[in-house]
Deep mutational scan, measured.
Amino acid sequence: MSIQHFRVALIPFFAAFCLPVFAHPETLVKVKDAEDQLGARVGYIELDLNSGKILESFRPEERFPMMSTFKVLLCGAVLSRVDAGQEQLGRRIHYSQNDLVEYSPVTEKHLTDGMTVRELCSAAITMSDNTAANLLLTTIGGPKELTAFLHNMGDHVTRLDRWEPELNEAIPNDERDTTMPAAMATTLRKLLTGELLTLASRQQLIDWMEADKVAGPLLRSALPAGWFIADKSGAGERGSRGIIAALGPDGKPSRIVVIYTTGSQATMDERNRQIAEIGASLIKHW
């Protein structure tokens, strides 16, 4: 067993022997301040990774656009098919120029040779490549099948209805392509620590998230040296922004954090800054 596999296998073990965790309302004060600064709703939840206990939450059962955070769930569904012998990570998928959609920095470079399922998941999570996500959605049967996968996990809230990039439209009061912070946090925890996926697939999923290259201005910008984070960000229309993450000190994750916002007129930089400040408060009061 590799060191990384050992780390993920012992996530519940280490967490069980940690000192009790206590909620700190100071972080919620910052979440509410972010709402004021952005002029928009902000949803927040913080779960203990081992027990699933909610440590703090704000608007945990209000719907927010998922945006690209759905790509972690998508690759979880792909990995479940791999575990069941219905898919192979090494299978190569070929596609054409007509398949390319807006923001496809990886797939646009491989029109000639195609990409493997493993490479597509890596591109979808680490670079948020939209064509990679659409190609992977095709392998599982489309958005409705991802929703069905989530329902089978016990998540009857999260739903995907459309493809990239239309799913980022974020129309107010439109339930399409949305989740709730509580539902997303619980589902992410199941994917990373539950028995739904094999140990190898859980490790692969967290490795992809740990290698995320496009979430630097968010929670990662607030992390002290030595902290662990595996995350996936999302951005959408109407001032929408979000991030889902597993993080913790001492090089291992111990909490799940989900943050979503929508309806702001603020710039992307300002949305990023507010999420980073929430992260800084979380870490300060850990």
Rank of each mutant, 00 (worst) to 15 (best):
R220Y: 10
Q37W: 07
I54P: 09
K284Y: 08
W227E: 01
S122W: 09
I283N: 01
E237D: 09
E175K: 13
W286D: 02
G216D: 07
A183W: 06
F149Y: 07
K109D: 05
I140M: 10
E119Q: 10
T267N: 09
F64G: 00
R176N: 12
M153L: 03
E169A: 05
L219V: 05
G236T: 06
E102C: 04
P181L: 04
R92A: 06
G194R: 15
I243R: 01
S201A: 14
L197V: 02
E277C: 10
M115D: 02
H285K: 10
A230P: 00
E277M: 06
L247K: 01
A183L: 08
A84V: 07
L150N: 07
R81Q: 07
V258K: 00
C75T: 11
V101L: 03
D48H: 05
T69M: 14
V214P: 10
A84I: 12
L191W: 03
E175V: 05
K190Q: 15
L197H: 08
L111H: 10
T139P: 10
M67A: 12
L120G: 04
E46T: 14
I206E: 08
G76E: 01
G279L: 04
E62K: 02
L160H: 14
R189F: 09
G154V: 06
G114K: 03
Y44M: 12
E164F: 00
G154T: 07
A148M: 02
N130Y: 00
L191Q: 04
A266I: 02
T267A: 04
A124W: 00
S233C: 03
L223E: 02
L196K: 14
A133R: 00
F58L: 11
A211I: 09
C121P: 00
D231F: 03
L47H: 10
Q37E: 07
G263Y: 10
L191S: 04
I171E: 15
R241F: 15
I229E: 09
R162G: 10
A132H: 01
T186S: 09
P172F: 07
R91T: 13
T116F: 13
P253K: 02
G263M: 06
K190D: 11
I259A: 06
K30R: 13
T126H: 12
V106C: 15
G279H: 04
S281I: 05
G239C: 07
P224F: 03
E56N: 04
M184E: 01
G114N: 12
W227F: 09
K71D: 00
F64H: 01
F64R: 01
K252D: 15
M268K: 13
V42C: 03
E210H: 15
D83V: 03
L55I: 03
D207S: 06
Q97T: 06
A245H: 00
L150V: 08
T186E: 15
T193L: 05
L137N: 14
A280K: 13
G263A: 08
D48R: 04
R238I: 14
T107D: 01
D212E: 08
L120Y: 03
L79G: 09
Q37A: 04
Q88P: 12
F58H: 02
S128K: 00
A123T: 07
M209D: 00
Q204Y: 02
G141D: 07
G43P: 00
D129L: 00
P217E: 14
A266V: 07
N130W: 01
L79M: 10
L137F: 06
T27S: 09
H156E: 10
L120A: 09
C75V: 07
M184L: 02
T139A: 11
S281V: 05
E102D: 02
K190C: 12
L74D: 01
E26D: 02
G141P: 10
G154C: 08
R91N: 11
R241M: 09
R189Y: 02
V42Q: 01
L282R: 01
S96A: 07
R189Q: 15
G239Q: 06
V257S: 13
Y95D: 01
T27E: 06
T179C: 01
V82G: 08
G239T: 10
A183G: 09
T107Y: 05
A276N: 12
E164Q: 00
S51I: 10
R162F: 04
M184T: 03
T27K: 14
D177T: 01
A222V: 11
A245I: 12
T126S: 06
T158C: 02
T139R: 12
V101W: 03
V258E: 01
E61G: 05
L218K: 04
L196G: 08
A280Q: 06
G90H: 15
Q88A: 10
R220P: 12
K284H: 08
Y103G: 04
K144V: 03
T131M: 12
I45V: 05
S128G: 05
G263D: 10
L73T: 10
L247D: 00
E195G: 10
M180H: 08
L205F: 06
E61N: 05
A124F: 00
E87I: 03
R81L: 06
G263R: 09
I54C: 04
G239R: 11
A170G: 02
R255V: 13
A222C: 02
D83C: 02
L136W: 00
R255S: 07
G234L: 01
A235I: 15
D83M: 04
G52D: 07
R81S: 06
M153V: 02
I229T: 10
I93T: 14
N98H: 07
Q97M: 05
D269V: 03
K71T: 00
L79D: 01
L89A: 10
N50G: 06
L219E: 07
R255I: 12
K252V: 09
F70C: 08
A230G: 08
N130A: 11
L74W: 00
L100Q: 14
L218E: 06
G85A: 07
L197E: 07
R159W: 14
H24V: 07
N130Q: 15
S68T: 00
V82L: 08
L28V: 07
E164D: 01
P165M: 15
E108D: 10
A211L: 11
T267Y: 03
S240R: 09
T116K: 14
R59S: 14
G52V: 11
S221L: 03
E175N: 11
F70S: 08
E61S: 05
Y44Q: 01
A77Q: 04
N168G: 11
Q97G: 09
L146A: 06
D250T: 02
H110F: 15
S240Y: 11
V258W: 00
R189H: 10
C75A: 07
W163E: 09
R162S: 12
A245Q: 01
A84S: 05
E237Y: 13
G114S: 04
G234R: 00
V78F: 10
S96H: 06
R202V: 08
D177I: 01
T261N: 11
A170Y: 02
P217F: 03
M153F: 04
R91G: 12
G142F: 14
V106S: 15
V72T: 08
T261V: 10
G90F: 13
Q274N: 10
E195D: 11
T178R: 06
T107F: 14
R241G: 10
P172Q: 08
L89I: 13
V31A: 03
D113V: 02
I206F: 04
P224H: 12
I45S: 12
L73V: 09
F228E: 09
N98M: 04
M66R: 00
S122E: 09
A276W: 06
I243Q: 13
G251V: 13
G154W: 12
R59K: 14
D113E: 07
A185G: 04
G236A: 08
T267I: 03
E102L: 05
C121V: 06
S96C: 10
A124I: 11
F228P: 01
E210Y: 14
I125Y: 00
L73W: 04
